[in-house]
């Protein structure tokens, strides 16, 4: 728990961020008809969910969680998701692009961009449309990637869920303009101002449960270029790749075939923080999808969060 006794009438930076995030969540719930919270099972989602519980305490969460499942997530993620959602008493909606999954969509044969387009962006837009949600919380942070540095807290999306970087509303003080026309929607980012370090610190101080994949242990991996790719599922291995056991952990969690691990011996949250504090490479470097010029910017224009 955050120490409330530190000094009188002064908040630590984490307490200030917490209060800002709660304020954003309450604004969205008060002003939108049918909000939903995107839940990716990762650490940022864990923090966002924890903040939501604080925001609406003592009442229950006034919106459901939405997990866009590609079918390629790690087993530990599915197990954690089902346990944690039950633990906090949230309502979970899981949505998959069954059509693409049944046709065998995968990154190796169809390419990372097409696979992501179908299983993530496509499925997300389908789920939002099906649920009739006019606002969707996302756990994106501005420090993650340079096109996100200009993202608003309320990110306006047209009726196709697309982002137009040149047509975003100015955001002043803590006044968020949530007025939209029929068919338009808003992606709301309550942890916009958090950094990776803030997220880890908060997880530690608040004892927030996270998927065990974030902690180092010996895992079966192959080395592909600069990436350590998990090899538990041999279907994603390329010809000639030899899996070996490597002491490693994941800095971010995505799909198994496309999320690299890092060599690490950090088995506790303190060690992870220590490691993050001396890291010289950003966490998203292990996400294959982010690379290539303007990759994130292009995906956001297509409807990605």
């Amino acid at each position: 728990m955050i120490d409330k006794t530190m000094s009188q009438h002064k908040l630590t930076q984490l307490q200030e961020l917490e209060s800002e995030s709660i304020h954003i969540m309450r604004e969205v719930v008060a002003e939108f008809r049918n909000p939903v919270m995107m839940y990716s099972v990762g650490k940022d989602s864990s923090v966002m969910l924890h903040l939501a519980r604080k925001a609406f305490y003592p009442g229950p969460l006034p919106f459901p969680l939405l997990h866009v499942d590609t079918g390629y997530k790690f087993q530990e993620m599915y197990e954690f998701r089902d346990w944690y959602v039950k633990e906090v008493g949230a309502k979970l909606i899981v949505h998959r692009n069954e059509d693409a999954i049944s046709k065998g969509m995968n990154p190796n044969e169809f390419g990372v961009a097409r696979c992501c387009g179908a299983l993530k962006t496509g499925a997300l837009l389908e789920a939002l449309e099906r649920g009739g949600y006019d606002a969707a919380f996302g756990g994106a942070r501005r420090d993650e990637e340079r096109s996100r540095a200009k993202e608003r807290v309320y990110s306006m999306r047209d009726s196709f869920g697309q982002w137009d970087p040149k047509n975003q509303r100015p955001e002043l003080w803590s006044l968020y303009n949530g007025r939209i026309h029929d068919g338009e929607s808003v992606r709301a980012f309550p942890i916009s101002n958090w950094t990776e370090m803030d997220v880890w610190q908060y997880i530690k101080e608040e004892n927030i449960p996270i998927v065990p994949l974030y902690y180092a242990k010996e895992r079966l991996m192959v080395e592909r270029g600069n990436h350590l790719i998990p090899a538990e599922n041999s279907q994603f291995l390329l010809e000639g790749e030899e899996p070996k056991r490597v002491m490693s952990r994941f800095r971010t969690l995505g799909c198994m075939p496309c999320t690299g691990a890092v060599r690490s011996s950090a088995t506790t949250i303190e060690e992870i923080i220590e490691e993050a504090s001396i890291a010289t490479r950003s966490e998203r470097e292990t996400r294959i999808i982010d690379h290539g010029s303007n990759s994130m910017e292009d995906k956001k224009k297509e409807g990605y969060f």
Binding site: T12, Q13, L14, M197, W200, Q201, S277
Partner: peptide, 11 residues
């Protein structure tokens, strides 16, 4: 990024 410390302020 920077050194882990809890009671830092925000500017």
């Amino acid at each position: 990024m920077s050194i882990a410390k809890q009671d830092i302020e925000l500017l």
